[in-house]
Design a protein around this nucleic acid. Structure first.
Lengths: 170, 170
DNA sequence: TTGGAAAGTCAACAAGACTGCCCTATCAAG
DNA sequence: CTTGATAGGGCAGTCTTGTTGACTTTCCAA
């Protein structure tokens, strides 16, 4: 710890950001911000019989229609059963469609139905509204820094996955 | 949505950061980064009979020794019962001490024991190591932006609470 | 053709959040 | 000194979301 303590007294104010106390502030900011980040969609979901896990599934099926259960598993980083329960209710309720793979019939290719897409849009828009407001308040430079730090924080495998995700055409 | 779509084609590249797609990328970055953010302490906790909730309690008791149960409740944003379960085990196991308030004897003032402080340090250091590495990789400007966006994302009440927290003297 | 591996499903369980209700101790104000 | 509000704690029950482990179906390669 001593390694990074009070570095600014040696090297100038630039390195204040590496003191344990500044890092601790970042940790707390992360905790509080994440809570807010999930609050809006959670509120919408609360009424229905769904939760945060359903939102995440809808999000990634939307971003990559036709992905397999296994790929979704990898992106979400949960176990099969955890996802399965969520997926089953989404399919039963007609929000997600699971088509048998043509190439490999063991695979199930996941798509949103019109209804699923509608819910995804609603949840997404609630979450985006908060982000948009934060982005606007902080400005483009801050946003660039925000993204850089988040990327640097990810596990290398996750980062590679994240970076290789294509932007959605609008 | 159309409101912020392709704004950069009108106003120049500066506003690319406000397109829905860029905001969506930020949302995903937030999700992936938060998962990494909690992974290290979770791994340590997994062995013991504790979880993420215990970590959070230890963290905030460490940052503000002698705080009351009610204040901790407010900071964590959970219900009494939820916190109580966690707090009870921590007290039973001798990591946290609960002293009757002198001014108001209804209050319980929470402190870490030496053992509690040791665990807090261990968890904290695991989490800080990742943050420190991310901060170093991204640089001071990025860190400033990171913090700005996170603050802007919080609920106003939380933000006020966050901003009024004092830095710990080292 | 057959045996292993991969994809997906299901059953049972645990952590951690929630609500609602009840209890005690203490304080402060009429 | 009573009475109402506040701080804290506890019990019962529920929900979401995570876990492990065992099972079927399907594919592919020896």
């Amino acid at each position: 710890m001593a390694e990074t303590m009070r570095v600014h007294t040696l090297g100038g104010e630039d390195l204040l950001f590496l003191t344990d106390e500044q890092i601790r502030r970042g940790i707390e900011a992360m905790f509080f911000a994440y809570r807010a980040f999930t609050a809006d969609p959670d509120l919408i979901l609360a009424g229905m019989d769904y939760g945060r896990a359903h939102h995440r599934a809808l999000h990634f099926i939307h971003r990559d229609p036709g992905l397999t259960v296994t790929s979704l598993l990898a992106v979400l980083g949960v176990t099969k059963q955890s996802l399965n329960r969520v997926l089953r209710t989404l399919i039963e309720d007609g929000l997600v469609e699971s088509r048998v793979g043509r190439r490999d019939r063991r695979e199930r290719l996941l798509h949103l139905t019109a209804e699923g897409a509608a819910l995804e849009r609603r949840l997404s828009e609630a979450q985006r509204a908060r982000m948009r407001q934060a982005y606007r308040a902080a400005g483009p430079q801050a946003v660039a820094g925000f993204r850089q730090v988040l990327e640097a924080m990810m596990d290398p495998d996750t980062r590679a996955q994240y970076q290789s995700m294509k932007d959605l055409p609008e």
